[in-house]
Design a protein around this nucleic acid. Structure first.
Lengths: 338, 338
DNA sequence: GCGGATTGTCGAAGCGTTTCGACTAACCGG
DNA sequence: CCGGTTAGTCGAAACGCTTCGACAATCCGC
């Protein structure tokens, strides 16, 4: 491996000059720059990332922090990851995937103090999330995907759940539905303060009230089986139900299966809207699901871009942005039955 | 941030002694070790990852290389990623996600020469994969998830497609099916030499021949719509079809939808086996899919563990391992109809 | 009780960059 | 033509660790 010394020697300049050519920190004459570039090309020179990181105190690595406690990632979360990875890579940064749960705060403290991360993106943020304080204390710039309750001094990108729920409810109400149930994430998720679960609950209650309708919410684990149970529960509480909103990608399929098993057609008897869903997943169902399409990889990309701007930024202010999900009408919604 | 100097001063030993306490490279008396540990605790000392990496020429970072050209990751690939991340994290390594396609070999060369990666795990390996040579030339140890045609000097973990296809075919034949079609990945994937597509094709042809049956393979893009078309094509070529094997997670759902639309029941009229599928996804379908369950996160974990062993290993030899998918019988297969 | 191994510690030399201060030469406005 | 910028370059000092060679002290078999 060639080092900067080798390049400097071959180009007959000093090491610092080579460094300036590379970083552009100081002006260098065109002639010198050409000599240096020629030498670098000849030696097939690549700067050593560790040395650079040590001297400049910038690793050009950002972390993507996500809890791994749960049952793997859904399609939406996977899209965050790929979006973030692509954005980092484009900007010449590296993305390390750090599986650090909301409870392993000591692990996180260790990671943050190693000075390996220039910054971090937090996924699966909870309304009260201890990771935020840990990173701030360690002086690691951060951007959230999601948000905590107090966002005053934070950068975040999140889905606009208010707007998303509003559009979904309005779509159903517009079709003429009045008995609408919402199948949310699990009780555990809600209790833990998982943002999407808490915010959609509140938004649902609010929007139904605005229409003068009674809100019915059912919590369900992330599985098809739980979806079936959720449907049972919903029908028990509201036998005259004609529409369902579901946050829970996996549960939706259980709901559809159970509806079919009970001889209820979709959308003839019951309309279904899937919230925060990727088009691919929506297409898997039969009929294809009317869904609020999540801005998946865009969220990941925007989060990383905001972080990088913050890193080499004069900017004192914070990036705070909400993205709505787009309503895509497919085959699972229609006017209420007969 | 406290440095090793601070620790050494406080503990009244030399810097090198602190280093030896940390790395265990040389014996240190219990008394000294205690002093040093006390000092580290008091100062809240964390070693600087960059400095350590520079001095030791080991970054403790491994790369997970995956092409991003395609339509995001499926559930199976996501499981590789999470398995790998967990394994790396457990071993005190970091995992960087590098979206480097099979065609950006120059990007890869650059990445590999930066000395940031101690080793790499390659995902989505093609039968002829240029990335392997690039990494080998750069002297970066690597482990494949998948394998190339010539595996002589390589470490890899892969799914045992032969065995998986055999079990799936035998399951259907055992139920009494004789007209069986295989819905593979796309023509493009096959042409590009994508391992799973190529190997299952060959295995299917071979196993059908062993049973004295005629193999019928249809290629389909990874989408529900393509699955519908694939079913059309299959029925056109073999109207008396009673069973389908599908490699293509997304296409399976299209196939099920189209079967329902044509009034054919599953498994009454047609049995369906989904290959290399996660249980969660299999449960989404109605009826739940009989599937060959992919060893998802285990593959990622094993790959990383093999890589790390290779890194601090005397071992000259290579880790080569095939994992079969387990047949899990659910509701989508049964004896051929009436 | 002797030679050789082992244990425990230290100082110093890297590792390959960035960055700071200093210096020269050219340039510019008055 | 003089003082003050600016452009262009250099040498050396970090950056925070690992590792090598050296050395003293202790141990062990015989």
């Amino acid at each position: 491996m060639a080092t900067m010394h080798d390049v400097a020697r071959l180009a007959q300049v000093s090491v610092s000059t080579v460094s300036y050519v590379l970083t552009g920190t100081r002006p260098i004459s065109q002639a010198t720059r050409d000599k240096v570039h020629a030498a670098m090309a000849e030696l097939d020179y690549q700067p050593n990332a560790m040395a650079r990181g040590l001297a400049s105190r910038r690793s050009r690595i950002v972390g993507l922090l996500m809890p791994m406690d749960e049952r793997g990632l859904g399609a939406t979360e996977t899209a965050f990851v790929t979006g973030a990875a692509a954005a980092a890579s484009t900007a010449g940064y590296h993305l390390v995937l750090a599986p650090v749960g909301t409870t392993d705060l000591d692990d996180l403290r260790r990671l943050a103090s190693q000075r390996m991360l220039d910054g971090a993106v937090l996924m699966e943020v909870q309304v009260e999330d201890g990771r935020v304080a840990v990173l701030q204390e360690a002086g690691v710039p951060l951007v959230l995907i999601g948000r905590t309750s107090d966002t005053a001094a934070l950068s975040y990108v999140d889905i606009d759940f208010d707007q998303t729920v509003r559009e979904a409810v309005d779509h159903l109400v517009g079709l003429g539905h009045t008995r609408i149930a919402y199948v949310n994430h699990s009780e555990a998720a809600i209790a833990a303060g998982y943002g999407p679960a808490v915010r959609t609950r509140d938004a649902f209650v609010a929007r139904m009230a605005a229409h003068g309708l009674e809100p019915l919410m059912i919590a369900a684990e992330d599985s098809a089986a739980a979806g079936r149970e959720a449907l049972d529960a919903a029908l028990a509480q509201a036998p005259d139900l004609t529409a369902l909103l579901a946050m829970n990608e996996n549960a939706v399929f259980g709901i559809l299966g159970e509806l079919a098993a009970r001889g209820r057609t979709v959308p003839g008897d019951v309309s279904v809207v899937s919230m925060v869903t990727s088009p691919q997943v929506a297409e898997l169902a039969h009929p294809a699901l009317t869904a609020m399409t999540s801005p998946g990889s865009a969220l990941g990309r925007i989060a990383v871009e905001a972080l990088l701007r913050q890193l080499d930024g004069v900017t004192g202010d914070h990036h705070q942005q909400l993205l709505p999900c787009a309503l895509e009408i497919r085959g699972s919604t229609g006017p209420p039955g007969r």
